[in-house]
Amino acid sequence: MGLKEFLFLLRGLQWTVALAAIGFIGGGIAGLFVALARTSANKLLVAVTRGYISVFQGTPLLMQLFVVYYGLALVGLKLDAWVAVAIGFTLHASAYLGEIWRGGIEAVPRGQTEAALALSLRYWSRTKDVVLPQAFKISLPATIGFLVQLIKGTSLAAIVGFTELARAGSIISNQIFEPLVVFGIVGILYFAICWPLSLFGAHLERQFAQGSR
C-alpha cells in the first residue's frame, strides 16, 4: 500500500471525525432538550420524549439513516447526503444523550433542587446553575462512552454514499487486494481516536470517584 492510498484513508478519517462531531454537537443540543423534557413536570412532554427515545434506541442506526435519506426522498423531500446524515446522527445521538443526561439529572439529590427552590431560584437558574453542572459531571463517563460508539457508528454513513474511513478502506482494499493490511490500518486509525477517549473517560471516572469536588 502506497502513500496515495494511505492519504485516501486519512481523508476518510477526516469525514469520520466530522460526522461524529456533527452528530455529537447536534445530538448534544437536541439531547439537552430531550433530557429536560424527560425530567419536566409536564406529563405530555415526558410521554412524547419517552416515545422518541424508545424509537431511536429500539431501531438500528443503519435503518434510521436509510429512512432519513431514502425514505424522505420517496415522499418528495430530497435531502443532500450531508444534510440527511447530519439529521440522522443528530436524531440518533439526541435520543441516547437525552437518556444518559436524564439519568444524570435524576441522580442529582433532591435536596439540591429544594435548596434552589427555597432560595426562590427560577426554573432556568435551578437547571443551569444548580442541576445541570452536577448532572453533567455524573453523566460524563457515559457520555464519553457514547461518543466512542458514535465514532464507530459513523461507518454506517457509507450507505448513503459517504466515503468515510470504513468505506475508504473497502475502496482501497478492492483496488490493491490487500484487505488484511488495509483493514488493519483502518482498525488502527479507529483505535487511535477511540482509545484515548476511553482512557479519558476512565480517568474522569476515577477522578470523580475520589475527588472532593
Binding site: 435536596g111 435548596a115 432560595l119 452536577q134
Partner: peptide
C-alpha cells in the same frame, strides 16, 4: 425571597465555592 430555609443535609451546591453559593440567589433573583 422573604423566607430563608436551612436544611438538615445543608444542601450546599457542591460545584460552587462557599462564596459562589452565597451570591447565586441574590444575583439571580
Amino acid at each position: 425571597r422573604e423566607v430563608g430555609m436551612v436544611f438538615q443535609q445543608f444542601n450546599l451546591f457542591p460545584h460552587m465555592t462557599v462564596l459562589e453559593n452565597c451570591i447565586l440567589a441574590p444575583m439571580r433573583t
